[in-house]
């Protein structure tokens, strides 16, 4: 045995008598050391961090409210309609075509300035927007499928519906116009020509107001045989237009979206002005009798604003490249 080992053993032995007893007692009493303390602390610290971030999330993006009486809560507070406490925001579902046009970028700040209520916008196809409204997941709708809107008001899902503005649909296609649509007056004739010649046609296929209108036109034109010339793309209006441009096909679009994207597209209007193509927009509130939590009072302010001379004037004077995209009020007869 080396001298070193001997020394070590002596050292160990010397301590043994006293220390060994104390040593094991200490050992049994406390089982977790520093590592265990860390194990405890780690989740606690993480949890605290999580709460900090979470609370930051819920509040940070909310705009500064001119009415501080209400907390920045994500949960809409239920209250009687009469009570005139201003909401911080309401949630509006609208269609992609409305959103893409840019009109809301003018309209909503004007409303915000006047009433201090922010309108938060979710854009979906008309069908999905109507569904969100029926479920009570939003407060107000701005959509364009008049027949469905009137039916749902009848059924009690919505109230205070107004014909707020209109524009029209147009048919766009390649400048060369292989189907010879240019010069036709009736959109049904144009659709028949496309179907007859098998020219590429792109359809939204997404339950939007535009798509619903397109289906009505196919029906009126008596076309029911859709072959590989007919492409149902399942996209918003902007994406559908871009795809149509890439494929040099035809599609039906609202005028607003087309005008706002015109510079980036290789498409022309090939048909417009047919009364069938009128596109009426309606604004309506989710019926508080169906969903008590909706911010009904604030939605009334928004509807009033939209229908007021000021709101209607904003709509009328909104232009892109010198062209009007929307016309105030009601554009069709019942």
């Amino acid at each position: 045995m080396s001298p070193l080992c001997t020394a070590v053993h002596n050292e160990l032995n010397k301590e043994r008598g006293l220390r060994k007893m104390r040593f094991f007692k200490q050992g049994v009493k406390k089982e977790h050391g520093k590592g265990a303390t860390l194990y405890f602390l780690f989740p606690v610290i993480c949890l605290m961090l999580a709460f900090l971030i979470l609370s930051g999330c819920a509040q940070a993006p909310a705009p500064i409210a001119p009415h501080p009486q209400e907390e920045a809560s994500a949960e809409p507070v239920e209250k009687p309609v009469e009570e005139a406490v201003a909401d911080k925001y309401i949630i509006m579902a609208t269609t992609t075509s409305t959103y893409d046009s840019g009109l809301l970028d003018v309209l909503l700040p004007a409303f915000m300035e006047k009433y201090g209520i922010e309108v938060q916008v979710i854009f979906k196809g008309t069908g999905q927007a109507l569904e969100l409204g029926q479920r009570g997941d939003v407060d107000i709708l701005l959509v364009h499928d008049r027949a469905s809107e009137l039916r749902l008001v009848e059924e009690g899902y919505f109230s205070d519906r107004h014909d707020v503005m209109y524009n029209d649909f147009v048919m766009v296609g390649p400048a060369a116009d292989p189907a010879g649509v240019k010069g036709m007056a009736k959109v049904t004739d144009a659709f028949s020509a496309i179907a007859g010649g098998g020219y590429t046609f792109l359809s939204r296929g997404d339950d939007s107001g535009t798509y619903r209108r397109e289906l009505k036109i196919w029906e009126k034109a008596g076309v029911s045989d859709f072959r590989d010339w007919y492409l149902s793309v399942g996209q918003g209006m902007g994406d559908t237009l871009r795809m149509t441009s890439e494929m040099q096909g035809y599609t039906l679009t609202d005028r607003g979206t087309y005008l706002s994207l015109k510079d980036k597209l290789d498409l022309e209007i090939v048909l417009q002005g047919d009364p069938v193509l009128f596109n009426q927009y309606g604004v309506m509130a989710v019926n508080p009798q169906k969903h008590a939590h909706v911010k009904y009072a604030s939605t009334q302010k928004f509807i009033d604003f939209m229908m007021s001379p000021e709101g209607q004037d904003i709509i009328a004077s909104f232009r892109i490249g010198g062209e009007s995209l929307f016309f105030p009020g009601k554009g069709i007869k019942d």
Binding site: P61, A74, I91, Q120, G136, D137, H291
Partner: peptide
Amino acid sequence: FSRMGPFGVLGLLWTPA
């Protein structure tokens, strides 16, 4: 979490939460 769903009353839809 939709208003019609079981946790609808929490009103968490359309929030970062």
